[in-house]
């Protein structure tokens, strides 16, 4: 039924990629969603739609777009090459792919959460002389926390399962850029059904434990 898992590298790599991508998405996503939740300006609708786009495109197309962007001859790739940085075919490319693909999920969740925060709490804090940064971290963020947590779970899950874009920009180099979903894909293709099943079990159990733990934690802190 199951195969002995001798190579744990894909598992460790997947965890690393998913965690870093989640952190990056959070750091980038919160400011963006906060601004768009409150601000009103011309073209906001279009901008919002643009941010949601990586969700719409098939991941392989996102991967192709990234390849054109951060590949050796890509716009960004050339600039980075001059600085001595190569992203393509490294696990950092996997992080970037996961980040781009999962970003809209955090954005949508966090935006709804920020919108639901009663603006009067912030106003009250402002009249008490708190700085904007302080208000954000001590008032807005805690009040919006449940929604952000939902975004975190979605982001983490999506980053962990990301396949199409990762395959394109990070390649499928065993021991270097092969994450679990990639390993599963190639195990299935090679007819190694036991290995594929084992890897599916690993990724399912692992994500189950993490998400379960987050949910439990959230439930406990709800009251």
């Amino acid at each position: 039924m199951f195969a002995q898992l001798t190579d744990w590298y894909p598992v460790l790599l997947s965890v690393r990629v998913a965690v870093i991508a989640t952190v990056v998405v959070t750091c980038l996503g919160l400011p963006v969603s906060r601004l768009l939740a409150r601000g009103e300006f011309f073209g906001k609708d279009v901008l919002e739609a643009v941010i949601t786009l990586p969700l719409v495109l098939p991941p392989s197309v996102v991967g192709y777009g990234l390849l054109i962007l951060i590949g050796k001859n890509g716009l960004l790739g050339k600039m980075l090459a001059e600085l001595g940085v190569t992203l393509i075919f490294t696990w950092w490319a996997a992080v970037i792919a996961s980040t781009v693909v999962a970003f809209p999920l955090m954005y949508q969740s966090a935006k709804a959460a920020f919108k639901s925060v009663d603006i009067n709490f912030e106003k009250a804090a402002r009249t008490l002389g708190a700085s904007e940064l302080r208000i954000f971290f001590t008032i807005t963020l805690p009040l919006a926390w449940p929604g952000i947590l939902a975004g975190l779970v979605l982001t983490f899950a999506r980053a962990l399962g990301e396949f199409g874009a990762t395959l394109m920009v990070a390649g499928n180099i065993p021991g270097q850029t092969q994450t679990i979903p990639l390993a599963i894909y190639f195990a299935v293709g090679a007819g190694k059904n036991e290995m594929a099943r084992t890897l599916v079990a690993v990724i399912t159990v692992f994500s189950f434990i993490v998400i379960y733990w987050v949910n439990r934690w959230a439930k406990k802190h709800q009251n």
């Binding site: 400011p31 941010i51 054109i68 962007l69 940064l133």
Partner: peptide
């Protein structure tokens, strides 16, 4: 201004990134 500046900076960078990504295609 510093706080909002940082937020706007990230916001603009992300937007540019996505626009370039789509524009590349």
């Amino acid at each position: 201004n510093i706080f909002q500046g940082v937020f706007w900076l990230i916001f603009i960078l992300i937007t540019i990134f996505l626009v370039v990504l789509v524009g590349g295609l």
